[in-house]
């Protein structure tokens, strides 16, 4: 039977109960929860969008126009709904993809050193924004 107060590291919590706080948020914690949030978002909202888009193409011009009307203005640009949904989905995709690559590297047993792990986490956070911006800038300039 293990002792009640084991001599091993405890969760990084300040206070307990209602006031429980992580005393020090690190980038690795942020990308961890971001991975779950972006993955869950794409699995639900992204799936519905993709299936709707494919079904609209299969159904014909009228159904496709309905799909387009929800997300674009009459001039063909994204409206506010389109911006929130599509920029959100692309941000989720690029962040999840980069962190997924980070996870595959860590599955191979690499990049667990504190400094390197922190650096990769920061690259994931920054890279998600950079790739999202690059994607929409390219589309905008096309």
């Amino acid at each position: 039977m293990a002792s009640r107060t084991p001599a091993r590291p405890r969760s990084p919590h300040l206070f307990s109960g209602f006031l429980k706080l992580h005393y020090s948020w690190g980038p690795h914690m942020l990308v961890s929860i971001l991975h779950r949030a972006t993955g869950s978002g794409m699995a639900t909202v992204g799936t519905v969008l993709l299936v709707w888009w494919l079904a609209a193409i299969a159904s014909g011009a009228e159904a496709y126009a309905t799909f387009q009307d929800v997300f674009t203005t009459d001039a063909g640009n994204l409206n506010i709904v389109g911006w929130v949904v599509f920029v959100g989905i692309t941000y989720a995709f690029f962040t999840h993809m980069l962190n997924g690559i980070r996870h595959l590297v860590m599955d191979a047993g690499a990049a667990f050193e504190l400094k390197r792990n922190k650096m990769f986490s920061l690259i994931v956070i920054a890279g998600g924004f950079v790739l999202t911006a690059a994607f929409w800038l390219y589309l905008g300039m096309k």
Binding site: T47, V48, L50, V51, L54, A55, I57, A58, G60, A61
Partner: peptide, 19 residues
């Protein structure tokens, strides 16, 4: 359900006539 719908839609377009 979503996978079946997506796959059916893709096949319908791929095997269908040109629009």
């Amino acid at each position: 359900a979503t996978a079946a719908t997506a796959i059916f839609a893709i096949l319908k377009v791929a095997f269908g006539a040109a629009a």
